[in-house]
Design a protein around this nucleic acid. Structure first.
Lengths: 232, 232
DNA sequence: TTCAAAATATGACCACCGTCATGTTTTGAA
DNA sequence: TTCAAAACATGACGGTGGTCATATTTTGAA
């Protein structure tokens, strides 16, 4: 509708019906009426790699439903170092923590590759809550799992040494987002270290025949041994 | 009723009405009917310092409502180092993340000092959800804030150096739980470092006239300067 | 009151890894 | 195709802070 998202390119939305199973999210999946409702209020946007979807400190105006592509939620600390808090793919809901906390975004959402998503204004979301109370329970469940994931990664990044974290990052990124090729910097920001340390660790892993590097492409050769390197 | 909590001492519950404003939680505060309902199903327990309220990996059977005392949620990693994820005082709800995620506890809840709480079985909580849908929204709001807090502390512990984290810990523990005196180990587990580093940092802070130490008692002398040490 | 266990305190050591510098390769836009 | 910018790669250096050892003080239960 009238809402202009900075840096994005508004595109003609496809109907929720056509959105397909792989981008089906927990809100739309809650009740067949919901996609119909959203069709009337949503706008669709396309983002290119590295474009910002929303900025830290801004106020949430609604929810984003990722249709295709990957989005990273990035938090930059005072000294300038960036950390990837969460990664979200098709079917994920973006911006819901801030919306339900009634807080400004505390991190910046950035497109990792080409992203297509639709945006639904807050008012419409609240309507859904009124008509479908079970949606709140589903979101509660989802948010509770996100909190566990955050606390687990937190502890891992505190206690594991850099090579263990890089091994863990490789396995995670491979398992969940295998279609993507990641830069050393992106791996570092996920693993909580520096690009230099990632490179040195990758070189070491290659020497030990755990992985194979050809350019930016990393292939895991010995998954079980890499797991043991990660202490998993 | 018949539920026996290991290590706890079941006591005769006081009525929710008498529980008082300082232990009023977001569920009880949602609707006047709720405390009445809980009165019929809750059991009350008392724990002494260092007693475990629930163990990591166990399944949640209900919710704990803290009436008095402090509880820490502690996660121990493979190598044995312990981290305090969250601290909860009177009015806080304990064990709700796991309950709503439908997961086992991923951390252990330990009484920091003498704790009195009441336990309400899951079935009763679900009944409340049915009768009062707005409770789910309140919990959603609370959980969303918890996730921000976790992610913020995560980033701080990654990026700040040890003395900054100790300064931040002192200020936080003072602000939120001033009645408690903390051991060096407890401060370390909150700040994400070791008791030795906490001691060295405290000695340094005392030399700089930021704090005063007499035994286990720490008094903040120069709060604003301590804040700048914490980079806040 | 006694006394062992826990907490506090401090010094010495050194490994990990972040930082900086330098050079090479790759990428992607003009 | 060209070329500058970004990413990759590797070496050298040094500081932070974890670990261990040891001694002292405090705590709390018998």
């Amino acid at each position: 509708m009238g809402i202009k998202k900075k840096g994005s390119c508004e595109i003609t939305p496809i109907s929720c019906e056509m959105c397909g199973a792989n981008s089906q999210n927990i809100i739309c999946a809650s009740h067949p009426n919901i996609p119909e409702t959203l069709d009337r209020s949503k706008i669709s946007c396309r983002y290119k790699r590295d474009q910002v979807i929303f900025y830290s400190d801004n106020d949430p105006l609604g929810l984003f439903f990722i249709q295709s592509g990957l989005v990273k939620l990035e938090k930059t600390s005072e000294d300038g170092s960036a950390h990837t808090l969460r990664l979200m793919g098709p079917g994920a809901i973006l911006g819901y923590r801030s919306l339900f906390a009634n807080e400004p975004y505390h991190a910046t959402a950035i497109a990792v590759d080409q992203v297509e998503l639709c945006f639904v204004p807050k008012s419409e979301i609240l309507l859904i809550f009124q008509n479908h109370p079970e949606v709140a329970l589903r979101l509660l469940n989802h948010l509770a799992k996100d909190l566990r994931l955050a606390e687990e990664r937190w502890i891992h990044q505190m206690d594991k040494d850099a090579s263990e974290r890089v091994a863990e990052a490789l396995l995670f990124l491979q398992d969940h987002f295998h279609s993507q090729t990641w830069t050393r910097r992106e791996i570092a920001e996920w693993a909580g270290t520096t690009p230099e340390t990632v490179m040195r660790t990758l070189a070491q892993f290659e020497k030990e025949a755990l992985i194979d590097q050809s350019g930016r492409q990393i292939t895991i050769i010995n998954k079980s041994l890499l797991k043991s390197k990660a202490n998993l």
